[in-house]
Design a protein around this nucleic acid. Structure first.
Lengths: 371, 371
DNA sequence: GCGACTTGCTTGACACGGTGAACAAAACGG
DNA sequence: CCGTTTTGTTCACCGTGTCAAGCAAGTCGC
């Protein structure tokens, strides 16, 4: 696998079917290089030649090349405190199968065994080229060790090596938000943008960054630690005792708790709260406006600091967006630096699969680019 | 000039004298490649061979290579509303000469003529390989056009082309903070860090970023727009009407004004104010503590978002650091995300030359890497 | 309907940057 | 003085991509 082959393959994988000529232009290669490079990929079945373009135009019609996505599979696994979610995806990151298992305890051996079981179960349909594991905490592709994971109580656990030994498949670790960012970069709203941010809302608030086509890994794996960004020092308290930080305003649990306690209706779920706000219930309305404002300000802060082309909003609680969109956009405009126009915000609907899918894409990316 | 030659040259330029073997290891090249690559650079006089290492050790002693910094010169120019500051530097970014001119008006032709005059004056001592121009506003190396410069009242001015035509030397534009960041990356505190942030304090508050060894250029050239980051919505007003934004707390003019008006002593300079705070004058003390807190929070925000190895603090007003270090560090610790340790902050003394020097380094970097 | 034109793709000779193996050089240490 | 270690050089070679040329397959104009 030469550099050019990798680049051609990735270009076709990410930017869909393209003619050789077009790929050559994009990668700044000669047309002849493309014939030469595409040949072995076609022979090996990684690429297919689409019959005709359909596009009428002057000159010889192009014969677009396309990646045969079914040519190999990856497994992605997201670890949470209670459960393990696994998916099997093809090269285009389409989910073909899923599986989940409870995690009875946080013992390393137990978890490795559960992971191995999930991998075996999802490998029944055919060979798997790589396994990606994502979790909240410090982990990076290229390092087989989980640095620190508060929710599992782990530090310095060589998880990738243990799993590799157990299942015999190359294994890549990553932080969950960064994995999701990788998925957006190649197969989501980030395609075509060399620089974007992904902001997630859910149990917490996270942020992943892509700068000049590279997923950013900060010092000791920590980037996008915006959950505790201070918004208003008279706001509600978060679990760490900060007053008015972003997650105290906008995390789903904080929103639910705030509305449920004020209304003295402890049975309310998060979605009930959204519904109340939609109906105009004043307390719910106010809490969600505050949440929207906080998110708008978080997004503005990220946008001011790094100047991304685009901010993608996602996470388990993104569906709250339509309830607080006005407050969010207003705050975004208000806090955007005066020399810029507000950054474009794209809302990406979320299913819980996304976390595991991100892990799979993370493995795919790493194995494709660094081996 | 092959890629390898460029890489070797840059490695030697930035990381001082190194033996061929060491360079080969760092750049992942074979030793033989190094002999081959170094030959033409030595012959052309761009590299010199240091006689002996001095380092005693086993094995054949190494013959370190070193860039002959005097081999070529660059001119850097910083434009402000009233004046133009120019310096001539060598390849190691050492300033050898300086020159300044007033800018009678902001007419494009006038300014081009003044720039040409400065370049001619500084070229008397010998040929110049490139000119870099930095200014507050949107400009990037690689684009000959100044997108927008509020203080000059310019938009879409092809300054680089005009200057190139006038002086016959390749010309590179850049935003001033980004140019300063480039200088720190190759010749300052950023050397050896693949990811760092530069925060400047002075008339405004700015921020430049280096992520994975690349100076970040955001959407339409805007990165690090942290001057108006909201700190406390009960704080002082800035000139744009924001209450309690970073520059309303920590810009030098804001600090001076705040102390001078409270004490009703309009004659006080910024440095007088620092002296008062040093002596414990309560009003000055409070204003500078607030400024330190604001800066600490700005730094924490940047550090949380991108996770740099290091934050370099600089700018015309950095010398205020020793007056507000405690407040700054306290705020930094308080607002750093709980899973991280506070980022290391390095204070870089500042002379006004630095802006122009940054412009020169910016040109040097761009011409070396992209041609 | 035929040639002119345009664009896509392929072929084969070739240039060139970098590697690997072998070796020379320059120190140290017993 | 000879092994050991590390640095640096030489030279044959290989592999990757370019260049020039030509073929392929369509549209356009007359």
């Amino acid at each position: 696998m030469t550099d050019a082959m990798r680049a051609v393959f990735v270009e076709l994988l990410v930017h869909g079917p393209l003619s050789r000529a077009e790929v050559a232009r994009r990668l700044d290669l000669s047309p002849s290089a493309l014939t030469k490079v595409a040949k072995p990929l076609l022979d090996a079945g990684y690429l297919r030649e689409q019959s005709s373009d359909g596009q009428k135009g002057i000159g010889r019609p192009s014969q677009p090349l396309q990646v045969d996505a079914s040519r190999s599979s990856f497994i992605g696994i997201k670890l949470t405190a209670e459960e393990l979610f696994a998916v099997r995806v093809d090269l285009a990151a389409t989910v073909h199968d899923r599986f989940s298992l409870p995690l009875p305890d946080h013992d390393v051996d137990t978890i490795v065994e559960q992971i191995a079981q999930a991998v075996r179960r999802l490998s029944e349909a055919g060979d798997v080229a790589g396994v990606g594991i994502s979790l909240a905490g410090t982990a990076t592709p290229g390092d087989p060790v989980v640095g620190n994971s508060p929710f599992l109580g782990w530090s310095h656990v060589a998880l990738a090596k243990l799993v590799e030994d157990a299942v015999g498949v190359p294994t890549v670790l990553n932080n969950d938000v960064r994995a999701l960012t990788a998925a957006q970069q190649w197969f989501g709203a980030g395609v075509g943008h060399s620089s974007f941010a992904l902001v997630t809302v859910g149990a917490g608030i996270g942020c992943g960054l892509v700068v000049e086509d590279r997923v950013v890994t900060g010092r000791s794996g920590g980037t996008g630690l915006i959950g505790h960004l201070a918004i208003d020092d008279r706001g509600p308290l978060c679990e760490l005792g900060h007053r008015g930080c972003a997650r105290a305003f906008a995390a789903s649990s904080a929103i639910r708790r705030s509305i449920a306690t004020t209304l003295d209706r402890p049975e309310l779920t998060f979605d009930d709260c959204l519904e109340l706000a939609r109906q105009g219930q004043p307390v719910a309305r106010r809490v969600l406006d505050d949440a929207g404002r906080a998110l708008g300000r978080v997004i503005a802060t990220v946008a001011n600091v790094i100047g991304p082309d685009l901010v993608i909003l996602s996470g388990e609680a993104v569906h709250m967006y339509d309830v607080c969109a006005d407050a969010l956009q207003a705050a975004l405009t208000r806090h955007t630096h005066w020399t810029s126009t507000p950054v474009r915000v794209t809302v990406k609907p979320f299913t819980f699969d996304e976390w595991a899918r991100g892990a799979a894409v993370s493995a795919l990316q790493h194995l494709l680019l660094h081996s």
